[in-house]
Structures are given as structure tokens and as C-alpha cells.
Amino acid sequence: MNAPSEHKNTTMGNVALCIINPKSPQNMGSILRAAGCYAADIIHYTGERYARARAFNTDTKNVGLNIPVEHIDTPCAEKHMAMVAVELVEGATPLPHFAHPEHAYYIFGPEDGSIEQAILDKCQHVVYVPTTGCMNLAATVNVVLYDRLAKSSQTQYGDQIIVASRDTNNRTKVAQSSQ
């Protein structure tokens, strides 16, 4: 594994993402945004394609400044984390039936390929999103992280979350219904 980058926190917590050889800076920008929205602790990526395109990513919220994004040679989770591959592969668990581990290292394949068998063999879990056809990489990351949030007993709900999360131009409210 390559040396960690000079970010303030390179220790993985509850959620880590590993993107195998990403090619699209737009997808990585969307993945960075998802990581911020769903409280991922770190993003690893393999391969060289993203390093060449990194300057063109669309990280509109500058999440990359707060969440470490590190190049690694091969996916590797810390000992306390379960490795979860997300891939359309026979024998995988459908996401709606999957119980997310408390500490998860999610591995996503490249836009134009699949996760290698040797990596799948190291994973404790392999899941897929049941769709017709395959999803975009960034969309898959969003769906998996949202599913984790939706199934968590720690998820908070209410107007205070909306106010803290919405765009500064959004001040709309649901009209009171007349009953």
C-alpha cells in the first residue's frame, strides 16, 4: 500500500470506500459528495486513471478537503472493518436483504469493468443493487450509502436535519394541510 496522504485523519472509522480504478472525474466528484452526505471517513482508489483526471472532478462541496482521498495499490480494510464488495455477480446478496456491518469497507468496481475475483474472495460480503441493467458507479455508491443510512438505528429525522442540510437558496416549507 502507498503511504497515506497528508490529511488530518487517515484512520478509518465506521465507513470507508474503495473505488477500483475509477476513470471518470465526474463520477469521483459525485462519490466525494456522497461521502460527505453519508459521513464516510475515507476514500481509497486504485489505478492511475483518476490521478490523471483528478483536477477535473466535480466535488462542488469540497469534500475532498475534509475526507482523505488516498491512492492505494490494492483494497485493504483495517482489521475492525468488514470488506463489502458491491458488484453484479452471481451469488451476491440483494441490497434490500443486506444488514450493513457497523464498520464497513465498501469496494466498488470500475465504470468499465468488474471487481477481480481475488478481491471478491477476500470480502466477507458481496452485495448487489437489484436493477434492470447496471447502474452508474456514482449512483451505486449513493444507493448503497443511503441504504446504510436508512437501515441505521442512529439516523436522525426532522426539520432540524433539513435546515442544516439544504442549499442556502432553499427556504420552502410544506404547506399546512386543511383538515
Rank of each mutant, 00 (worst) to 15 (best):
N9T: 06
V69W: 08
H80K: 12
P22N: 09
R49T: 14
A34T: 11
G64M: 06
T93K: 11
P94E: 14
M28F: 15
M28L: 14
T58E: 13
G64A: 06
A104L: 03
H97V: 00
C37A: 14
N62G: 01
E90R: 07
P94Y: 05
L95Y: 06
G36D: 05
A55L: 14
F56Y: 14
T10A: 00
A55N: 15
R52K: 15
N2E: 12
L88H: 02
K23G: 15
E87M: 07
G91S: 04
A3C: 02
Y50T: 01
D73E: 13
E102K: 14
H7E: 00
P75I: 06
T74N: 01
K79V: 09
A35P: 10
G29Y: 10
H103E: 09
K61N: 01
E102L: 12
M28W: 04
I42H: 12
P94H: 07
R33N: 03
V69T: 12
M28T: 08
S24F: 14
A85C: 15
C76I: 01
R54C: 07
T58I: 08
E87G: 04
M1N: 04
V15H: 02
A3S: 12
C76V: 02
P101M: 11
T10P: 00
E102N: 11
T93N: 05
N66L: 06
A85Q: 04
F56R: 15
I20G: 10
A34Q: 03
H97S: 12
E87W: 04
Y38P: 00
G13L: 10
K61P: 00
M12C: 10
P22K: 10
D59E: 04
G91M: 05
E87Q: 13
I31N: 08
A39T: 05
P75L: 05
M12S: 14
A85L: 05
V86G: 07
H80V: 00
K23S: 15
H100C: 11
V63F: 04
E6T: 02
F56G: 03
G36E: 03
E90F: 01
T93M: 13
L32D: 03
A40R: 01
E102Q: 13
M12H: 07
H103V: 00
G64K: 04
M1F: 02
P96K: 08
H80R: 04
P4T: 09
E87S: 13
H71K: 15
A51I: 11
N66H: 09
N21I: 02
Y45A: 06
I20Y: 10
A34W: 04
T93R: 08
K61S: 05
C76H: 09
M28E: 06
V63P: 03
V86A: 11
N21E: 15
Q26K: 03
K8G: 00
K61C: 00
N27Q: 10
A53Q: 14
M83S: 06
D59Q: 06
N62A: 13
R33S: 03
V84P: 05
R54Y: 14
R33L: 07
